[in-house]
Design a protein around this nucleic acid. Structure first.
Lengths: 350, 350
DNA sequence: TAAGATAGAACAATCGTTTGTTCAATGCAA
DNA sequence: TTGCATTGAACAAACGATTGTTCTATCTTA
């Protein structure tokens, strides 16, 4: 059992409040230098650490944040979490991690639990458009930041990238390689990234004067399995696309598998572009061309935005938007292979 | 601000303790049915949830666990964490995640912070042999479970696999394929998995009557970079090994990269085996032969062992040991490729 | 030397719950 | 009607820390 203020007070023959004042360097009360010395020695000797729970109760501040995501085994969210912890830890915060598997019920139940625990703030990385959970967070006055996906109601504090721009980069790259039938493994219409990346895809097509065949857009969700299923469907069309833009790298991974199983070569038979540039992307064979976003920075920026709110006590409406960058790799290169090729069109080579 | 017991008491014209008793179905005190009804209705209407911090202070139980690992972006630890959360969440626990990057100082500082926060227990997945942090946990009487790596002092509660057996499986497999010079990218001598897997490797060699050239064992650590560096060194030897057993999949990934950069084909020029069977292993090209361990189960078993201690108040010395299984894939198969092949017993490769 | 200022520490309330104890009112039996 | 159970709810003391207020010496100053 750790030592308490009261026990120390008894040992030092002073009142607990005196110990507390020394421990906290309370400027509101003078302490005789000799007493201070004596108590400081005692604190060092006993390695006193204030009980965080009691402190949290009194100060109404727990120094605990929470990150709510679909699934930490998805490398995107793992990198995001690291960013959050790296941003919050130096300020004395610990971070709870909650996986929802994309289920609104689990999300809801986690949030309720977090609220009861009095966490100081929440980073939500899987919100839906018009997400009731977000509305709830706001009306409970729990500081929060949305990451990657936003919820369209009002103006939430948000960290992400410009999904329309990113998707347009990806699609334009395929078009510039000469592809005329470009498919899209799309996200859901209930999620901002789904809507915006689809919009960017369509915008790029029309800018290039390419027709937009609705059969070339299939909703895949965000899992590898969903990507595989949707890609298989897409590649079974009579006039199948020669290129695919997948809404995330994980769906692109699924598409890789589907293409392989159908005996199609990447990129000769079908070129594939992903989104996010997760670590796996550069290790695939061929390496995946994708839209790079600074995932770790998403996390630390979100932590910053959150701590800002926690410390001022004011809700924020700041948005931090990073610029997506196209990374050209083997999955779209003119000549197939493991190694990156020359980028086309102002793309960055990694 | 959430509603408190006192506020509810005022609204219901009863004493706070009465509300608390209704909310907790306290069997130690009779409540008049009519009063109970009235209060239950009020609880429902206001969606009352007890303040977890206050509750934690009074009951000395926070319903918070912590997982301390080197790095969540390592897929092994991500899967492990999922296991822990899946095991703990149904019992009402939330889980803090702490990344140490393998630094004893950061580990120490995290543990201190967790202790001050009064977490109910800690799952430690990166302990060293004779780890002072483990000793500290014990003497602070903080319930803990070690995962994957153990600390040799006394008999800690532990979840893992039999590393000697696993390493022997892997090495024997390479020997059975006809390899006679088998290298080892070894873990550190300060870590149980490092010692035991090396032991298993050596045991397999001597069982097969193969010589054990000390130059074929190079310490690589557990990172991709370390694996790449060590593999490059190994493969630069005059009589370089024709096969490598890497202490983890991530080091094997590093070895893949090094081999590629040296123009060596896998498995024709060098066969590679990893350990852990992380999701990435099966997606590499060629897919990685590896020793499968049930990572997610590690996590949930650890949660079980921990909750057991938390609930009984007794430290445990139980150990849960899973059996490792060899998964043969393309990185050691006679014919290279994405798909698993049958191992060709006794066939010379070069 | 008396009055007032000041230093230094104790006091006490509070955060929101839980839970053993006390207390008032009712019921029943003698 | 008195006495004693029994019921149902209030009371109060924690849990461990923080912080405004009060109190008691000691020290100035006139």
């Amino acid at each position: 059992m750790p030592v308490t203020l009261k026990q120390l007070a008894a040992r030092a023959h002073v009142h607990p409040s005196t110990i507390s004042r020394v421990a906290n360097h309370d400027p509101g009360q003078r302490i005789a230098p000799v007493t201070r010395q004596r108590i400081e020695e005692l604190l060092r000797e006993t390695e006193y650490r204030p009980n965080g729970v009691a402190r949290g109760l009194k100060l109404r501040q727990t120094l605990v944040l929470a990150v709510v995501i679909p699934d930490i085994t998805n490398p995107f969210f793992a990198a995001l979490f690291r960013g959050v912890e790296d941003g919050a830890s130096p300020h004395g915060y610990n971070v709870l991690l909650c996986n929802t598997d994309g289920s609104p019920e689990r999300q809801r139940s986690h949030l309720q639990s977090l609220h009861a625990r009095q966490v100081d703030g929440v980073i939500l990385a899987s919100s839906f458009l018009k997400d009731p959970a977000v509305r709830w967070l706001r009306q409970q006055r729990i500081p929060y930041v949305l990451v990657n996906r936003y919820s369209d109601q009002a103006h939430d504090p948000f960290v992400g990238s410009d999904d329309v721009v990113g998707a347009r980069l990806a699609t334009a790259h395929l078009a510039a390689l000469g592809h005329e039938r470009i498919g899209h493994l799309a996200g859901k219409a209930t999620v901002s990234t789904g809507v915006l990346r689809r919009r960017g895809y369509l915008a790029a097509l029309s800018e290039r004067g390419l027709s937009t065949d609705p059969r070339l857009v299939i909703e895949s969700g965000y899992t590898e399995e969903g990507g595989a299923r949707a890609a298989q469907q897409l590649l079974s069309l009579d006039d199948r696309p020669t290129a695919i833009f997948a809404v995330t790298d994980m769906t692109a991974v699924g598409a890789f598998g589907a293409a392989r199983r159908m005996g199609l070569r990447i990129p000769q038979d079908v070129a594939i572009v992903g989104y996010n540039d997760i670590p796996l992307a550069s290790r695939m064979v061929p390496a995946l061309t994708t839209v790079h976003v600074p995932i770790h920075d998403f996390g630390s920026a979100a932590a910053r935005l959150l701590l800002e709110q926690v410390e001022t006590g004011e809700p924020s409406r700041r948005r931090v938007i990073f610029n997506p960058e196209l990374i050209v790799r083997g999955s779209t290169a003119a000549g197939a292979g493991d190694e990156p090729r020359l980028p086309t069109i102002g793309a960055k080579l990694r």
